[in-house]
Design a protein around this nucleic acid. Structure first.
Lengths: 219, 219
DNA sequence: ACCTGAACACCGTTCAAGT
DNA sequence: ACCTGAACACCGTTCAAGT
């Protein structure tokens, strides 16, 4: 059997989808976003993220990616960037649901929503925190977004101190302690060092966070 | 210039090391350990760990590895196993230096030595905690060693409760909280989300752990 | 029994063209 | 300007032999 001409069905008709997709991409000039979207789609299905697979999904030659991303790391950085934005939205929503709640409750909500995000987006979370993508300083946006998350946590701790619920402590260390706790729990759960029944994640996280929050109150 | 025959120096003499190494391996039948050792050597220099590079270092054909390890994951599991053993030794030594110290000090020592181990062996630590190597249950030894570490921490917390220094709490959750804190801090430091001056790591870790330990004391 | 060589199906990336 | 095809230097893994 002779090899089919590219883009042709066995009966001779043209393959429609690929070509149309490609056209669209050219048209709205949104190949960059399409590539990031395809990449996130791939990892959300826990499939292997490669440049070649991304290009296949979008329907372009794998070399076309280099027009928009210098290399694989640059694409991963764009994926991570989107992940940080999503995480920030998640955390802010969790806090918005708890207006006027005491500082302890708000810290708990930060922790539970943080862990829930990681468990709901395991591959995405791993790209965000697994490797150092900004090693050579090419993606300062990543640092900025991480800083924004840092400041979100810091703001809650400061509010707790100002309201008299938390004892004053070195803030930087306290933020990192909280973050270490949430990140450590999330990543241990992701590699199944901690085994969790999905329905019981939130109470478990609250139990985990409680000695820490108790420590913020204590002398 | 014609390509040299394999194993021959420019002046025609035979290359000694490779061949000798190979012979030795055959002799004491220790290829398996030699491979793991070479793998650890590679990652300790932060070079890329591949089956082919490991085989090159040991001086065998890359196919020879499959005689001892089913696949790359099996070799990584052996590397991780050695890592867990080293970590356990480190933690036990830290505790041995603190006989009769109060529970708070011993918890602090566990945390500082844990983080120090991760920072001193970054690539090794990443293999131990980065991916789920035992996904298909082929390497139960990994679970056993992790359990041993769990029980080490658990023993300290129990001792703290029995000595009256810590308030009684659900132990499993408390162990995982402590572990999350240490692991989270270590891995955030490894990806440089937390930036540390090497000399100040221990005091920093103690600051991080202190609200948690305070919480173990508090009601 | 143990090791090897050639081959396969993938990668990311580079070079040199095509339109 | 933007996309492509062929090629390169790597992988891990499989197959079929070699001693």
């Amino acid at each position: 059997m002779p090899r089919r001409t590219r883009g042709t069905l066995p009966d001779g008709r043209r393959v429609p989808t690929r070509t149309r997709k490609k056209r669209e991409t050219y048209h709205h000039g949104d190949l960059s976003n399409a590539l990031v979207g395809a990449a996130i789609d791939i990892i959300s299905k826990d499939e292997e993220l490669t440049l070649r697979e991304v290009s296949r999904r979008v329907g372009v030659n794998h070399r076309a990616i280099y027009r928009h991303f210098a290399d694989l790391t640059a694409l991963l950085a764009a994926v991570a960037e989107q992940g940080y934005r999503n995480l920030l939205v998640t955390l802010k929503e969790a806090l918005a649901d708890l207006k006027r709640a005491p500082a302890e409750k708000r810290m708990e909500a930060l922790a539970t929503s943080y862990v829930a995000f990681a468990l709901a987006n395991p591959a995405h979370y791993r790209i965000m925190f697994g490797r150092r993508l900004n090693e050579d300083g090419r993606f300062p946006i990543l640092e900025e977004l991480v800083l924004e998350a840092f400041e979100l946590i810091d703001g809650e701790i400061l509010a707790g101190i100002e309201s008299g619920r938390f004892v004053s402590r070195p803030r930087r260390e306290t933020v990192f302690a909280f973050w270490s706790l949430a990140h450590g729990f999330a990543s241990l759960a992701l590699v199944r060092r901690i085994k969790l029944k999905p329905a019981l994640v939130d109470p478990y996280v609250r139990q985990i966070v409680s000695p820490f929050v108790a420590g913020l109150r204590a002398l």
